[in-house]
């Protein structure tokens, strides 16, 4: 795989992997919306490594970069009362530190 020397480590996930969003409520600017915490989805694609927005928000340099993925969720997995068919989905960008294997 492509080497990203300034990144925190090798990426842990690949397209098709099932993942779960970590449930945590640390203070400060966090780039993960509450509605998706605890939900399971599938890696749609790996987007690359980007400066960490949760550090950039406070004037830090955002290094080391974080791996960013697009994760696809079934809407019926996210919302108990979703009004629509089973095949409707939502894609969200998630930094690796908010993911765990499912």
């Amino acid at each position: 795989m492509t080497e990203i020397p300034d990144c925190i480590a090798e990426k842990r996930y690949s397209s098709g992997d099932t993942v779960q969003i970590i449930v945590a409520f640390p203070p400060g600017h966090r780039r993960i919306p509450d509605y998706i915490k605890g939900k399971k989805g599938v890696i749609e694609r790996y987007c690359g490594a980007f400066k960490n927005p949760e550090e950039l928000a406070y004037g830090f340099d955002g290094e080391p970069k974080r791996h960013l993925y697009r994760v696809r969720f079934k809407q019926t997995e996210i919302w108990d009362a979703y009004d629509g068919p089973e095949h409707d989905t939502l894609d969200l960008e998630v930094q690796e530190h908010w993911l765990k294997p499912a």
């Binding site: 780039r31 927005p53 068919p85 095949h87 969200l92």
Partner: peptide, 15 residues
């Protein structure tokens, strides 16, 4: 129609 999948993209980071 119901057979169409709605794909919502939450543009929350670098894309």
């Amino acid at each position: 129609a119901d057979h169409v999948s709605v794909r919502v993209h939450d543009s929350n980071a670098d894309m």
